[in-house]
Amino acid sequence: MNEAGVYGMVAEFGDATTLVEAATAIKQQGYRQMEAYTPYPIKDLHEIIPGSNFVPPIVLVGGLIGAATAWGMEYYIAAIDYPINVGGRPLYSWPMFIPILFELTVLFAGVFAFFGTLALCGFPRPHFPLFNLPEFSGATSNRFFLCIERGDLLYDSESTASFLQSLNPIGVWEVEDI
């Protein structure tokens, strides 16, 4: 297979234990562009395969925008745009603004969390090169995969394959990038 049209080298492992051991070994070998595919989250992998996580700041910004929106809207409407004089009570009655302030903070934080996570995941992306591998459909049920991507500096069809074979996998495949 011509390396140019390749997405990466995929190896399947029998369980979480061997997967984490293999991921550690691959990292020690010097590979950096690696990704694991598992049917449920495995926390140990997050240390072995580091990655960015911008979800918390996105949610914080969303919450702050929500709070500012609520406060600005309530102040503008209640005190400037449509003032209602109730027995001379203050127009800027901020304690009464708190419930909506809270709700809009939560609403914006939640909407930012949802769409921010989708964006960071690159979703929607209905097709992915690894879906070309028939075995890969098990990655969402009971099968554990590791993929060394072609962009890795150490990637080489033959040496990477033989290295993965040495980690006692169930199978090793080179997957096309279609």
Binding site: Y37, V55, F123, A139
Partner: peptide, 22 residues
């Protein structure tokens, strides 16, 4: 509906964080 979910560890990390924050 699945948006292309494939269970990658990077996605799981983001997903877990988002669920916890939500």
């Amino acid at each position: 509906l699945a948006f292309g979910w494939r269970g990658s560890s990077h996605h799981w990390r983001l997903h877990q964080t988002a669920c916890l924050l939500l």
